[in-house]
Design a protein around this nucleic acid. Structure first.
Length: 302
DNA sequence: CGCCTTTGACCAGCGC
DNA sequence: GCGCTGGTCAAAGGCG
């Protein structure tokens, strides 16, 4: 990063400009009001220019970051031998990843794939592959993740590159749906489940259907659970943690790194909303903000 | 009894 | 051709 530290752009925004002058006189004459209006308009224009400048600076920084990462990736490729893996019809070509629960230990190869995704998309014509990370309890040894769909496990295998077994799932929501899912614990962190999705669902998410008709609500949280008893049995199953690491938000919202799995995206939004409404700190902060706003309004009206 | 999971066997691709 | 590896199948067993 040293080569770029010298060319860093100052993105700080001084929002205190003219604030102290914004106090309106007790009984201003009309000309003073017009003058004040002109001044505020000028400040508004100035702020707009600063915003534009900031946006340009952001783009410059982003471009520099991309160049730097690409360079480091190239050197990593040169130094490390290519992975000895056979070609698979649905390899991580159309790679996309979502990091849930602030899991930041995604391997360099993952980031590599992630950053080169755009270039690869041009050449990829095969089915879509997505990867989702689920943070779990370290004591939880199950390989089931709750992603809103029903899955039928059809195999489990211990792979060479990871001592943890890999579980194979097929979508059980619809017979015509050929989406497959592989779940395996991360090599670096055993508490992280890596779910690799192959293909796209040709049906709506069961949890959405359930929430619409109000029946079988347990399915919306139960993955492959099909009965209340089964849901209870799986009560300790893995659930994508709802704590959202805002430092990772770029990864999710950036145009080049968005989650390509619409269902996963929807689920994330639902979980975020759910966690926010359940969070007492958030509701307290929201109440304080609303109260403050109301108080402010009442104060200015007097 | 039906559904689901487990697990050993089998198959296919790849490298040597 | 052979061995290794990942992926899939299907019979057996468990559970409600």
């Amino acid at each position: 990063m040293d080569q770029y530290s010298s060319s860093l752009v100052d993105t700080s925004l001084d929002l205190t400009i003219g604030v102290t002058r914004m106090r309106v006189e007790e009984d201003p004459p009309t000309s003073a009001l017009v003058e004040e209006l002109k001044r505020v308009s000028a400040e508004n224009k100035k702020l707009s220019e600063m915003l534009t400048l900031m946006y340009d600076n952001y783009n410059v920084l982003r471009k520099q970051l991309m160049e730097y990462v690409n360079k480091s990736n190239i050197t990593e490729r040169d130094q490390s031998s290519p992975p000895k893996k056979r070609k698979s019809p649905a390899r991580e070509d159309a790679f996309s990843s979502a990091v849930i629960g602030g899991v930041s230990e995604s391997s360099s190869t993952d980031q590599d794939e992630y950053l080169c995704k755009k270039q690869r998309e041009e050449t990829v014509v095969k089915e879509k592959v997505s990867r989702v990370y689920y943070k779990t309890e370290s004591s939880d040894t199950t390989l089931v993740v709750k992603d809103g769909y029903q899955w039928r496990k059809y195999g489990q295998k211990v792979t060479r590159d990871n001592p943890s077994p890999r579980a194979y799932f097929k979508c059980a929501c619809a017979p015509s749906c050929s989406v497959k899912k592989k779940v395996q614990r991360s090599v670096e962190d055993q508490s992280v489940l890596v779910a690799t999705y192959e293909g796209e669902h040709n049906h709506p998410m069961p949890s959405q259907i359930d929430s619409n008709n109000g029946l079988n609500r347990y399915i919306s949280h139960g993955g492959s659970a099909s009965t209340p008893a089964a849901a209870n049995r799986r009560s300790s199953l893995t659930e994508p943690v709802t704590t959202v690491d805002l430092t990772e938000s770029k990864k999710v919202t950036s145009p080049t790194s968005r989650i390509d799995f619409p269902e996963v995206q929807k689920l994330l939004v639902e979980q975020m909303a759910s966690s926010l409404t359940k969070d007492p700190n958030f509701t307290a902060a929201l109440a304080a903000a609303v109260t403050g706003k109301l108080y402010q309004q009442n104060h200015t009206e007097k």
